[in-house]
């Protein structure tokens, strides 16, 4: 797996370190000479000093053989053009742009470029975590379109003691696993939820809050 990352700052540094640790071949493009020198010393990555929205720089980075390009500069217009060059000129199978302005997520997707907004991700994480105390784990999947959440059935839960078939969860949500006494059960309709069970639920952003309320009883 070869990943080209265009950008700088701490996000880029830790992403690069993370990818390198996974054994990916990492190429970084950065416009700041000093930062490039630091990155080259600290990361197991090829570091290229230059403008990532310049086709020549992308070519030097070997973008044509990359499996993915990540554009995470602080400028949305640069991230868009980097990804469009990657896709149109270098035929990179996956190009992902950071949308600094959350409104640009939709715009980029309309223009055929996959985008994410840290504002969206962080604010939804904070909202979800702040509302429900019993949630111990939470992971967005599929570009944040699917959530996997682990929670504890507490004493205030309206579903403790009920069978799964009697719990009317909204469409497109699922109790995937019940963890009880260190045993995992993939439950079916007749299984009951007990007090202190840990359950793993799969939800979509639109029904996430509702499902969690139904299971924990918390507002």
């Amino acid at each position: 797996m070869k990943v080209v990352i265009v950008g700088g700052g701490k996000t880029m540094f830790f992403l690069g370190r993370n990818f390198a640790a996974k054994g990916y071949r990492v190429v970084i493009i950065n416009r700041n000479m000093e930062e490039c020198e630091d990155l080259a010393k600290q990361l197991k990555a090829v570091v290229i000093f230059g403008d990532g929205s310049n086709a020549g720089t992308l070519e030097d980075a070997g973008t044509a053989s990359a499996d993915a390009v990540l554009a995470i500069t602080p400028h949305d217009q640069d991230n868009l053009v980097i990804c469009q060059l990657a896709v149109n000129r270098f035929r990179v199978p996956r190009a992902i742009a950071l949308a600094n302005d959350p409104d640009n997520v939709k715009v980029f997707e309309k223009l055929g470029i996959q985008a994410f907004s840290t504002t969206h991700i962080v604010s939804s994480l904070i909202e979800q975590r702040a509302t429900f105390e019993e949630i111990t784990n939470l992971m967005p999947l599929g570009e944040g379109k699917v959530n996997i959440t682990e929670l504890v059935i507490g004493s205030g839960s309206p579903v403790a003691g009920k069978q799964l078939k009697d719990i009317c969860l909204p469409d497109n949500s699922l109790i995937a696993v019940i963890i009880r006494n260190n045993q995992s059960i993939v439950p079916r309709g007749p299984n009951e939820l007990h007090l202190n069970d840990r359950v793993v639920v799969i939800t979509l952003p639109e029904n996430h809050g509702k499902v969690l309320k139904m299971l924990t009883g918390e507002e």
């Binding site: 929205s53 400028h75 217009q77 868009l80 053009v81 469009q84």
Partner: peptide
């Protein structure tokens, strides 16, 4: 900026 113009 080329990139601004291309995006707009």
């Amino acid at each position: 900026s080329d990139n601004v113009n291309i995006m707009v």
